[in-house]
Design a protein around this nucleic acid. Structure first.
Length: 376
DNA sequence: AAAACGGGGCG
DNA sequence: CGCCCAGTTTT
């Protein structure tokens, strides 16, 4: 397919460049498969700079696979709070538990075994095998596909599985003897630092002399990637319910369902509405029209919500959904009498203050709202 | 093959 | 504000 000379040049130059320019990252200080694994999962769809503090906190709290396996899931989620894609955290812990039980506490070193673990796909398995065990397996992520598509002028849509598959085949052929881990990291490092999505730094690129996209002036046009569909809008109204009596200074939160979006995380009680009600910018702030559906929904959970005033508007974009949310401040209709506290509260509800928030993992959108409330 | 699944940084 | 990111699982 491609000439041996073109491939040989690429491998040699890239490996040399990586050895000179590699960043000193926390997970590059050992080849501990467990640490490599954590870093690779955190790095899925997430930038290095974002991951660093999370990684440090995570291995400090869970230095061994045993410590992670034995931890309560809520604590793992709390340490993951803000990183997103929370199924990564749940899958990681589940997979570590399986390693404890099925593999005697040793991360397996074969493609088949490691790929069978939850949350470990083609990229992560290759990354762990090459970086931790120096096995000549491909680790093809977005960076690698960008680099290869440019250097070899590959114009296939990188969103297609067939494209990733053919790039894995190519990537294996490029791995220098005995240097799989360094080479794969070098490939990703080049994509992150030099062969960037926009305005690539071709002048400092170690392989620019034989880069086909550069020769053709197509480096900015590659890789070819089909556009994703825009996120669909969703409109929601949330309740910021202030406690009274023994719950004075606290607000009411609830846990999300076991499955689906943001599974088992905590949130403000809220409801989806068919369209966005006006924020009522007049003074004083009026309660958004249609807040009745929120009151009705909460009544269905035995929560008597008495709305008082508009609090704020919040927006949040997921990869596939755009939330527009109005937050309404209010109280419980029937103040809870001391002694029978929480008697009518469903089990997935809790009263929290600023301090006890730390025990619950929230998606960022709710964290922002609640933090603003408590800092007022 | 397409959709679900978070969040942040950058030009 | 659009684009992109060290992807995997489910449908």
């Amino acid at each position: 397919m491609y000439s041996e000379e073109k491939k040989q040049y690429f491998s040699t130059e890239l490996l040399g460049w990586y050895r000179r320019h590699r960043r000193d990252l926390p997970w590059r200080r050992s080849n501990n498969p467990y640490y490599i694994w954590i870093s690779e999962v955190m790095l899925q769809q997430t930038r290095v700079e974002t991951v660093i503090p999370y990684f440090e906190r995570f291995i400090e709290r869970f230095p061994t696979m045993e410590s992670l396996a034995n931890a309560p899931e809520e604590e793992v989620l709390k340490l993951w709070e803000g990183l997103g894609y929370y199924s990564r955290a749940r899958n990681l812990q589940g997979a570590i538990r399986e390693v404890q039980e099925r593999y005697g506490g040793t991360v397996p070193d074969t493609k088949e075994e490691i790929s069978s673990l939850k949350g470990v796909g083609p990229y992560t398995s290759g990354a762990i095998l090459s970086i931790a065990y120096n096995k000549p397996e491909p680790a093809v992520d977005g960076n690698v596909m960008r680099v290869l598509s440019r250097y070899f002028l590959i114009e296939e849509d990188i969103m297609k599985n067939s494209t990733r598959s053919s790039m894995e085949k190519l990537a294996v052929e490029l791995i220098p003897e005995g240097a799989a881990g360094e080479f794969n990291q070098g490939l990703m490092e080049l994509g992150a630092m030099v062969c960037t999505p926009r305005a690539p730094h071709c002048l400092t690129c170690p392989v620019r002399q034989h880069c086909s996209a550069r020769e053709a002036g197509l480096e900015e046009a590659l890789p070819v990637k089909k556009k994703a569909k825009p996120p669909r809008p969703e409109y929601r109204i949330a309740a910021l319910i202030e406690g009274s009596g023994s719950n004075s200074g606290k607000i009411l939160i609830r846990q999300r369902p076991q499955e689906g979006l943001l599974a088992r995380m905590w949130e403000l009680p809220h409801v989806e509405v068919p369209y966005m009600y006006p924020a009522a910018p007049s003074l004083p702030r009026e309660v958004p029209e249609g807040v009745n559906s929120l009151v009705d929904a909460l009544a269905g959970e035995t929560i008597g919500f008495s709305p008082e005033r508009w609090f704020m508007q919040a927006e949040h974009t997921f990869s596939h959904i755009h939330w527009e949310m109005q937050v309404v401040l209010g109280t419980l209709e029937r103040p809870v009498v001391p002694g029978s506290r929480d008697a009518h509260l469903p089990s997935h509800y809790r009263w929290v203050d600023a301090a006890s928030m730390a025990q619950f993992a929230f998606p960022n959108v709710f964290l922002k709202i609640i933090n603003r409330y408590f800092s007022k």
